[in-house]
Amino acid sequence: MITLNSVHKSFKDKHVLRGITLEIPRSGSLVVIGGSGTGKSVLLKCILGLVTPDQGQILLDGKDVSVGNREAFLDRFGMLFQGGALFDSLNIWENVGFRLRRGPKALNKSDARDKAIEKLRRVGLGPEVANLYPAELSGGMQKRVGLARAIATAPEIIFFDEPTTGLDPIMAGVINDLIREIVTEMGATAVTITHDMTSVRAIADQVAMIHDGTIKWHGTVSQMNETTDPYVDQFIHGSATGPIAALR
């Protein structure tokens, strides 16, 4: 469904992506793992067109993502950002219903609010938070609001950028379960970026490991547990010794 062919991206003299080639199948859950600063977030931003690749091609259903109607393209995606990226100036229901109020299929204010509250309920938040502002919520609640916003229009493809970073283990477990449930019930294609191996095992059908700007390994969760690949082995065991430099 999403195909990346030899995607390169550099920022000045820092080569972040050095030829990423990857197939992301429809209706599956792919988790991309890799150390900090290896280009995982840049990879997602390249697919969404937030960052323009220097070289290579990104295809969605066989069509180049850089051409065509951008609004129609983005309508197919939802994204949960690492820090939530909730709009400070809008209250919670306005954040969740942001896209519902825009575009050709825009809902009126009352319907958008009802739908936003329904999505908030889906992520375990009650209607009492609807009129609060993001600054009034805890980190875990903000993540859930971000998740509600990402699924508000029932997109076909959802990206999760480090969904459990900064959360306590219990809240991380709640978010992992929510992601798994929602992706399964919506039949969506999910791509998640994480360092957290508990999340990988809870969310992933497929795992891809990115290192040094390329995909070093790609397989299923059970294959990951049995692989002898030194990069994957070092990463999943959190070992300081191995082919991945501990100090980068």
Partner: peptide
């Protein structure tokens, strides 16, 4: 600037705005 560093501007774009 704060919106930029907290990815709110990226979020706007992903919400077709």
């Amino acid at each position: 600037g704060t919106m930029k560093v907290t990815e709110q501007i990226d979020a706007l774009q992903t919400l077709s705005t």
